[in-house]
Amino acid sequence: MSLAGPRYPQAKADAPLVVFDFDHTLYDGDSGSHLFVWMIRRAWWRRVLALLIAPVFAPMIAFLPTRRAGISAFVWAGTIGLKRRRDLDELIDRYVAGNADAIRRRLLPHALDVLHRHREAGDRVVIATGAPPELARAILAFVAHEDVPVVGTEVGPRFGAVIARRHCHHAMKMRMLREAGFAGEIAIAYSDSSADLPLLQAARRPVVVNPKPDRVEFFRRTLPPGTPILNWGCPDRGGEPLPG
């Protein structure tokens, strides 16, 4: 799914590498959760199934060691019956096309402007997200008209559904970026999440965007002095607000 967008100079192999997280960085919210809620709501029996598993799996999402298992359970409820990754990709495209206006309102204009400026400068830009890569790719292509490489959570068939096989999260995000060919020094990394600490620490210039208010002091203690901690338009998040 794509529409014609801006034309950018071809990034050279030695151009600065710039990595953006997606959720709460370019997109106001958790795009994967919004997708899978939509998928679960497609049928009454999926809603019942999600309610039955919620007491066990919903609390697991709050803790890093069990987050993958908790998320996977609800992904399973939303995708049971799908047999191939391609089936999920097609469903994602349908979701994005059918909800384009609501999704567009969640994309952060200043964030997209920063992305646009990096691409105009000829930087190598990549999105690294915990969501399925087709979701961020479809949103950026269809809604924002940006065609940019995306590294995300690997999904595949299991237990009669299509669920996460490798979660692009924490240290695994760095590993998956390298495996995808984005080697060398990271010039700038943008993320909201302490789960992306390995990514932010690997960057020559980390930039914290839209952090949870109670994580601001953590970032100040953990990242180099002077690291920007910014708010790009999420009213319920922390960080220094945009001028004006």
Rank of each mutant, 00 (worst) to 15 (best):
M1H: 11
M1R: 11
S2K: 15
Y8E: 05
K12Q: 14
A13M: 11
L17S: 05
D23I: 05
Y27K: 04
G29I: 10
D30F: 08
S31V: 11
G32Y: 07
S33I: 15
H34I: 15
L35P: 02
L35N: 01
V37Q: 07
V37H: 09
W38P: 03
R42Q: 05
R42T: 02
W44A: 14
L49W: 04
L51P: 03
L52G: 00
P55H: 01
P55G: 01
P59G: 03
P59M: 03
A62V: 14
F63I: 13
R67Q: 12
A69Q: 07
A69C: 08
A73W: 00
A73Q: 00
A73P: 00
A77I: 00
G78K: 00
G78W: 00
I80R: 03
I80P: 08
G81F: 00
G81K: 00
L82V: 00
R86T: 07
R86M: 04
V96F: 05
A97C: 14
A100H: 08
R104A: 11
R105Q: 14
R106F: 13
P109C: 09
D113I: 13
V114Q: 11
H116M: 12
H116S: 12
R119P: 07
G122L: 09
R124Q: 14
E134M: 15
L135S: 02
L135H: 03
F142R: 15
F142K: 15
F142H: 15
V143N: 08
V143E: 06
V143D: 06
A144W: 07
H145F: 09
D147P: 12
V150M: 07
V150R: 09
T153I: 07
E154T: 12
V155H: 13
G156F: 00
P157L: 01
G160R: 01
I163C: 01
I163D: 00
R165L: 14
R166P: 03
R166S: 08
H167W: 15
C168S: 09
R175M: 13
M176W: 13
M176S: 12
A180E: 10
G181F: 04
A183T: 15
A183S: 15
I186K: 07
Y190V: 11
Y190I: 11
D192K: 07
D192M: 08
A195I: 14
D196W: 05
P198S: 03
A202C: 11
A202S: 14
A203R: 11
R205F: 11
P206E: 04
P206S: 04
V208F: 04
P213N: 04
P213D: 04
R215Q: 14
V216H: 04
V216C: 05
E217D: 12
F219Q: 01
T222M: 10
L230M: 05
L230S: 02
N231S: 04
W232C: 06
W232I: 05
W232V: 06
R237K: 14
G239S: 03
P243H: 13
